[in-house]
Design a protein around this nucleic acid. Sequence first.
RNA 1: GGCGCCGUACCCAAGUGGCUAAGGGAGCAGUCUGCAAAACUGCGAUGCAGCGGUUCGAACCCGCUCGGCGCCUCCA
Length: 481
Amino acid sequence: MNPLKVFNTLTGSKVVFEPLIPGQVRMYVCGVTVYDECHLGHARSALVFETIRRHLEHSGLAVTFVKNFTDVDDKIINRAHELGLPWQEVTKKYIAAYYRDMKRLRIEQATIEPKATEHMPEITGLIQRLLDKSVAYQIGSDVYFQVERYAPYGRLSKRKLEDMQAGARVEVDERKRHPMDFALWKGAKPGEPAWPSPWGDGRPGWHIECSAMSMKHLGETFDIHGGGADLIFPHHENEIAQSCAATGKEFARYWLHNGFVQINQEKMSKSLGNFFTIREIFEKSEWPEEITGEILRYFLLTNHYRSPLDFSDQGLREAKYALDGFYDLFNRLKETAKTEGPGNEKLTAVIEQTHFAFEQAMDDDFNTPAAIAELQGFRSEANKLLETGLSTQAREQARQTFRLLGSVMGLFQLEKWQFNVDLSDIGVKGLTDADIKSKVEKRDEARRRKDFKRADEIRAELAALGIIIEDKTDGTTRWKR
RNA sequence: GGCGCCGUACCCAAGUGGCUAAGGGAGCAGUCUGCAAAACUGCGAUGCAGCGGUUCGAACCCGCUCGGCGCCUCCA
């Protein structure tokens, strides 16, 4: 078996992955702050880490996957003001939106999906530990982490405290002992969400919740911590500082970060206004939900997770075409063979080879583009073998291989595919399968009579309804829509 | 100012020291077909932004230049 290698942001290099407890992986991923609709960048992050989890499981490891919701935060408070809603309604609304989007993308839930607001005792307990160790200090009802008390501060983002001071664009709170000190606890102003604490009513700072929740659900030292590349600093840097300072132990051992989704080479972000929400992509899609979900997954996974990915209509279209090719093959694999297949033996060898190369690609820092290339190679081989002849059983075996390897990326699980645009929503009446079958039979009959004019008329008629016809060599016809 | 990333054919995209630089899409030509479609076959970068250097050998390492981007502030 190949060793699994991952790119660890902490070391800045690809390293062999060895879980602390053999056979078990504990991973934590920073989820979303629930104050707005999720955009494609959130989808990418969720999909990437789901795929990582699936691959680990596919490799025989037992994975405990924790993904949090940040459900208390300044942005949520602001949003609640804007909408004139209680903040709890805002988080409720966007958690529901999140699950709706994840369902459309067929992204499975994590093992545990904790919320910050449900972990106040753990959060205040952790802050107290930091105060007890004198690495944090209190100013009024606020508590700050003192970065200078954690010597390795900056080891994840590879920067020095001195360098950051020089370029700090933030307005510095004069009461802080060091400009980079960050809030662990924020005293509440009237009307703000607040929980009791030894330092007064307030709410947690952004970073502490992830430390508290990951430690609670995974232990003080665990294997993988992930998130978007923009979380490296300050979020993850601060998580490391506060966690390691509190426990005196290593926190997460492997840090994995996904690259951004871009539009025209620029980061997709709220502030630039160049973002697409998952919701609007689905709503604007000309394909049914299942198909769109598959297209998006395929599109997102044809880039390596650490690289930036440029979103475009053309990219989606290409993903659709590529999937058309796969599902077209799957349809043909479903047809029964009349004869025994001379290609059966070869198929077994090709499957074995594909399996090996696929896993090798995934073991190399989750190289999904290379893994997909292997599947495309298999597709091409399967097409060739189909030409030489494959038994019904061998066809099913090939389909199962696509299903199995595809499952690592959540692809190829659909039983029905749509090749052509659905015209029913622009008023074109759809045909039932039986209608189509009868028309196809009429056409075949016309072809037998060599009445090609009539045959072509029927074909054109069906084409106008989005139905594609393919004549087989045995004189029968298959169709798809 | 500090730190870091990227630049591979018309497009997307692997490869990061050693056989002919994966794979897909598009294009062109052909096989098959009544015609199509699908599938298959062939063609397609003597070169990996540019220039130097290290090396027996570099897309891959080093330096410089050009172009693009990110983080340092909330951000997946």
